[in-house]
Nucleic acid binder design. Structure first.
Length: 311
DNA sequence: TCTGCTCCCCGTCAGCGATC
DNA sequence: GATCGCTGACGGGGAGCAGA
């Protein structure tokens, strides 16, 4: 079995174990199964195959080749099970409602709702981008660009937010390069062609991390000297206006790029939630272990008190 | 220094459920 | 029924580490 295949097979088995764990949680057997799962997971992370849980997986993976084919056969069934699994947020919130002290994952107020009411009318279908440092850049109607720093780290040096189309990009495709902080302290966008996005005059010039701290977000304007509409923004063509096959192809490419971009962001968010979920479960395990220990001690104490003394 | 392994992160695809 | 968001699965790449 190749390294990659073995790795995936182990992953799959671990995942199956985790799934059983989650299901058993819903049945109320939280502590034991969770602990098992956690230990299995942690053991795998450390690569120590002498520990029982991993040894079990390793045995499956390395000595029982027939299990692999069975695993392939069962993959559809497993997939069916997995596909019905509720989201992490859902599971966590269910757990939270059962047990006080477990923080809930907040329903995210989407940036679209909160800060960008006009996004729906914008040409760029997804108007919120995130830089590699977590900054959110939103393009609002009229070419206004908003930058939001979720953290307090501020922006150091040059960052690039580049959106390109794989293959041959259609004319008009958005290419945005974001220079977060230039040497002279100003912030600029470089959009398609030679357009420069400059800070809105009405906005007070403030460091981005300050803006994040105060909630004030600087706004930016795409300066397009020759066009009424900012050319760095891809305007959505109405279906009726698409005639030639080339235009249709461009539209399809644009849609695909948009979908990929959205999915990319969704995957990031999903992974973030998953991490949060796992952290929460781990902290719960810790709490329950302490609780369990206390109860055992209490039991022993009661036993000592109640049992008749023997010589 | 090189090689192999493991872990982690990311982008993409596929499939499902929810919503319109 | 179409669209959208979410998430598991998959494959790739980089970083760190241990052994040759």
């Amino acid at each position: 079995m190749s390294k990659c295949a073995r790795k995936k097979y182990i992953k799959t088995n671990l995942r199956q174990m985790t799934m059983e764990t989650v299901e058993s949680q819903h049945d109320g057997n939280i502590t034991a199964s969770l602990t098992e799962s956690k230990s299995a997971h942690m053991q795998t992370q450390t690569g120590q195959n002498s520990i029982p849980a991993l040894a079990q997986v390793a045995t499956i993976a390395e000595t029982d080749e027939s299990a692999e084919s069975e695993g392939v056969i069962d993959s559809h069934k497993r997939r069916e099970i997995l596909s019905r699994r509720p989201s992490y947020r859902k599971i966590l919130n269910e757990l939270s409602s059962d047990v006080p002290g477990v923080p809930k994952i907040e329903e995210e107020k989407s940036e679209e709702e909160g800060t960008l009411p006009n996004i729906a009318t914008m040409a760029v279908p997804t108007s919120i981008y995130q830089t590699s440092t977590g900054q959110y850049i939103a393009i609002a109607q009229g070419g206004t660009i908003q930058i939001s720093n979720p953290g307090s780290d501020g922006v150091q040096g040059l960052q690039a937010l580049t959106m390109t189309n794989s293959g041959a990009p259609p004319p008009g495709a958005t290419i945005v390069q974001y220079a977060a902080q230039s040497a002279d302290g100003t912030q600029q966008f470089f959009a398609l062609g030679s357009q420069v996005v400059v800070q809105d005059e009405e906005t007070e010039l403030a460091p981005s991390h300050m803006a994040a701290a105060t909630g004030d977000m600087p706004t930016y304007q795409i300066r397009a000297p020759t066009a009424a509409l900012p050319q760095g923004v891809v305007m959505a063509a109405s279906p009726g206006s698409l005639h030639s096959p080339q235009q249709l192809a461009e539209e399809a490419t644009r849609k695909r790029e948009l979908r990929l971009m959205k999915n990319r962001e969704a995957a990031k968010e999903c992974r973030r939630r998953k991490k949060e979920y796992v952290k929460c479960l781990e902290s719960r395990v810790a709490v329950l272990e302490v609780q369990n220990k206390k109860l055992r001690e209490e039991l022993e104490t009661l036993k000592d008190v109640c049992s008749p003394k023997t010589d």
